[in-house]
Design a binder for these strands. Structure first.
Lengths: 183, 183, 183, 183
DNA sequence: GATGAATGAGTATTCATTCAT
DNA sequence: AATGAATGAATACTCATTCAT
């Protein structure tokens, strides 16, 4: 049922998706749909919450490596891999959910918090390691995170089902060079 | 009148913006709105066309520098500056216009062509210069462009009216390190 | 200008015809159109009045013949010819004008009066002549008039520009046989 | 619901009738109306289809009599009676539906086919019988059909609920005299 | 007189949501 | 719990009419 909603939202976008279409796709009546979610917005919110949860889980190993100060050759591929996997699962749904005005403040805050937590972990990692070379760890972390998110999304969109290894390697190169100043 | 439309679209998103609200904001009647644009879609299309035109103009100097093989210290700040300026003018409107299903194919193709032309110019520049260090010029150009676009957008969103110079400098650092392997 | 209105009404029907289209076709502005007629309805009314006037004139000779008790072989062809000519000039406009709800009561009454006057003339003629054979002159006149109007309209619609002589002759035959019982 | 639509169309004509008015008259909401018919046009089309169906049924006995070459005294009253009954049920609705541009091509073709089939049956009947007297069976059939349709409509309009027997008898007289040359 | 930009009430249609069965 | 018919507010768009220039 959530799955049906996800598919309809992916296909038509949040505004053009109708609750009727979602119910029909799920093989239930709209009445039943409304027995489980009080509104279309709630459906979107739950989809958003699921994504945030999945993101949390997917990023946990990378964050752990950053927290324990793993070397760049271990931490960066872990971070890039997690981010790419995250976007690879449902890139269109991801895009739709984070369009303006689709999700409520709760989901928005949750994503912001997650993003910030990764940023902070990266900033602390940058401050702690001596083989990196950045003048302002917080700023560099933010720039790196933003770039990574966009690039991971791009890779996921262009290569449906399984990201291109060369593109992933290239993102790692970008981050390594940017943050360590070396290859 | 276009200005009013831009503002309403920014505030509510393309789908939630009503033609009535646009007319009211512009201080004209709904009938007058339709005297100048045949549909809501046409209004969006014109806004999109304006953006593409502005982007073309803003990117011209940077492309020229790339084309003539300017040194990294000249080409990269020019490219970053142009891109940041581009996104700085109306970052929210920009986002809304390029959401899925908002603009027709014409505008979409125009943006894609512009993006490709910058990418190609960068790729040729990378292939021609000896003080850069990339294994695959085309791939590196794409990655650099994607990262640049996202970062410029991020900078524009966070700092309304006048981008933060430190953040802009940081983007330049990222591109310089990524593409030349050096500071 | 009236001519332009007539043409647009013919082409699109009374409801679908817009005052803008009429003005454009006439080569004037809507402002000017409204300087001569206070409303779309008034335009239709005048067109209707013109038709009634033309009908009056066209039917005058036939009525005169009926009034002076002309023989069937003279009166019937005169009546049929007048009616066919009447419908032949602008059959589509005619149809449009007499659709339900197009003309106001004034025009409606004028047409009804004209129709009644022809009917009455025919009834008096039937009552006066001895070579006709009808039991109820008033009823026969009404039936003959109704049939004649419909047949004349049909002939005019099917044969654009110049009615088919054979069809006209056939209508005469119908009336002659019906009213005189003989050929 | 169809009944309400029929009444509103009768009262105001096809163009002036609003879907809101139809829904209100039917005692349902506008949403419910659109649950059963996808558009105002579809509503008109169904009304038209019903009429054609009813016409088919009403004319069947008369056509059967014509087909088997029944004598004039049997065939003509049957034809006139069927036609009068047909128009008697809802003469105003009938008029509205067959105004220009109201019904789609499907309905238009169906009516034309029905009309042609009656005409053809009459023409064959005229050609087969020896007690009729027409020079051109096809032309006479067309003229007779046109006249009959118009007269039946007129009778139906003037005498709401139950046609005037005398007027019906008069139409029979007209057809009998026209087609047989005798009483 | 002529113009045509401006007006805004009116229209068909959609779709999130409810509730009797 | 499940259903799906019913609801009606909301929305894009049209067009007769006005009036300042």
């Amino acid at each position: 049922m959530l799955e049906a909603a996800a598919r309809i939202f992916e296909e038509r976008g949040a505004a053009a998706a109708t609750t009727d279409a979602i119910a029909r796709r799920a093989g239930v009546s709209i009445g039943s749909l409304y027995q489980y979610w009080p509104s279309k917005e709630a459906l979107l919110a739950e989809l958003g919450a699921c994504h945030v949860l999945a993101a949390h889980a997917a990023l946990a190993p990378a964050r752990e490596r950053l927290a324990r100060g793993a070397p760049p050759d271990e931490a960066i591929p872990a971070l890039v891999g997690a981010m790419v996997d995250l976007h690879a699962s449902r890139p269109r749904l991801h895009r739709v959910l984070w369009e303006d005005g689709v999700l409520g403040d709760d989901a928005r805050h949750a994503v912001a918090a997650l993003h910030r937590s990764v940023c902070d972990a990266l900033a602390r990692w940058l401050a702690a390691r001596h083989d990196v070379d950045v003048s302002d760890a917080a700023l560099a972390a933010r720039v790196a995170c933003d770039a990574l998110a966009a690039l991971a999304h791009g890779v996921a969109l262009s290569r449906r089902g399984g990201a291109a290894p060369r593109a992933v390697r290239e993102i790692e190169t970008l981050l390594r060079r940017y943050l360590t100043g070396r290859d």
